[in-house]
Simulated scan of single mutants.
Amino acid sequence: MSESILHVRVGVPVEESLGAAAETMKALDRGEAPEPYFGVGFEDMSQMLAVFTPKRWELIGALRAAGPLTVAELARRLRRNYKNVHGDIAELMEWMAVERDEAGKVFVPWSEIVVDMRLPHQAAA
């Protein structure tokens, strides 16, 4: 398994992310090998919590601990309905938190998932 980190960022302006991507491209043009960065972003906490629900965090933890599993086996281990677990896996795959291997088993490719929440600017007093 990879020792990579998935960064889940909340409230970070798109411009800031685009700026970081531009800097990475410049480094590549100079022949430098920048550190790999994997991230997904959400405008606000409610959007993030709609994707990363408590049940899905439980699923991520169980998968990380067990290693690659079929969705059916994961559902059995979590004592959850297969259809619900299948839907959760599909959603988490869209957000890069879970992947499927060549055998069709699902797994968490990250050693860490770091959630970074930017607080709104405080209004001037």
Rank of each mutant, 00 (worst) to 15 (best):
W95R: 03
N84P: 00
E91V: 07
D44C: 09
A72M: 03
G104H: 14
D101F: 14
V71R: 15
A90M: 08
E99G: 00
F52G: 04
I113L: 04
F38Q: 09
R64N: 11
L69C: 04
W95H: 07
L63T: 11
E43P: 00
R100V: 05
S17R: 13
E94G: 05
P36S: 03
V8M: 10
A103C: 06
M25A: 15
G19Y: 09
Y82D: 04
G87S: 14
A33R: 15
Y82F: 13
N84D: 10
A72G: 00
G31D: 10
A65L: 06
A27T: 06
Y82L: 12
L18K: 11
V98M: 06
A50V: 00
E99T: 01
L69A: 03
E91A: 09
A65R: 15
K83I: 11
N81S: 07
L63S: 12
A62H: 12
V115E: 14
F42R: 08
A62L: 10
H7C: 05
P109D: 08
A20K: 13
T24C: 12
M48I: 02
S4D: 07
R80Q: 12
M117R: 10
G19A: 14
D44Q: 12
E99S: 05
R76S: 09
M93N: 08
P109Q: 10
R100D: 01
I113Y: 00
G41T: 01
A90V: 01
R56S: 06
M45S: 13
M96G: 01
S4Q: 11
W57I: 06
A97W: 04
K55Q: 07
P36E: 03
R76A: 08
L78W: 05
G11K: 05
A103I: 02
H7T: 05
A27L: 15
T24N: 12
R56G: 05
M117Q: 13
F52I: 07
V14F: 11
V98S: 07
L119F: 14
W110M: 00
L92Q: 02
L69E: 09
S111L: 08
V114S: 11
N81D: 15
L18W: 06
M1K: 13
A20D: 09
D116F: 10
S46D: 10
D29R: 15
F42E: 05
V98K: 04
A22W: 09
E23S: 15
A62I: 01
R9P: 01
A124N: 01
A123G: 12
E16W: 03
L69M: 12
F107R: 13
R30K: 14
S111W: 06
F38I: 02
M48H: 14
P109H: 11
E43V: 02
V106P: 09
Y82S: 03
A75R: 10
W95D: 00
K55N: 05
L92S: 01
D44N: 15
K83D: 11
G87P: 02
E15V: 10
I113W: 01
L119Y: 11
K105P: 00
M48T: 03
K105M: 14
E3W: 15
E32Q: 14
P120V: 04
E58G: 03
V115Y: 03
V51N: 05
E16T: 02
G61I: 00
D88G: 15
A75K: 10
A75N: 07
G39L: 08
P36L: 01
S46M: 03
V98A: 07
M48S: 10
R77V: 00
K105T: 01
D88M: 13
